[in-house]
């Protein structure tokens, strides 16, 4: 059990690190996906000790399905960003500042 949780914590930290250090939007998205799977792993791990293990596993199935959608939307946004600004560097997109 502990090992699962440690792995999940590591995955979350790696994902967060990726999101925060990478300037490329695609890498940021990859980091997000890793963080998401850290959560999924947690759900699976707890479902093993739960009296009704199907609940956690069902959650994860939904989560994976929605993650796929989210990845598609995210990639579409990046594509739109490329077409509009000719860059995928998120540090260059600071128009919200003003």
């Amino acid at each position: 059990m502990t090992r699962f949780l440690v792995l999940s914590g590591l995955l979350l930290a790696i994902g967060a690190y990726g999101v925060m250090t990478r300037r490329n939007a695609i890498c940021t998205l990859l980091g997000l996906e890793i963080m998401l799977n850290a959560g999924n792993l947690n759900l699976i791990a707890f479902s093993r000790v739960s009296p009704s293990p199907a609940v956690g596993q069902t959650f994860v199935l939904f989560s994976i399905g929605i993650a796929a959608c989210e990845a598609a939307v995210g990639l579409a946004l990046i594509l739109a960003m490329w077409r509009r600004y000719r860059t995928v560097d998120i540090d260059k997109l600071v128009s919200l500042k003003e």
């Binding site: 999101v19 925060m20 300037r23 940021t28 919200l96 500042k97 003003e98």
Partner: peptide, 14 residues
């Protein structure tokens, strides 16, 4: 606080 940089916002969120 409003830098406009996504990474700063992410840091605040985390």
């Amino acid at each position: 606080v409003q830098t406009g940089r996504v990474r700063d916002y992410t840091a605040w969120m985390l």
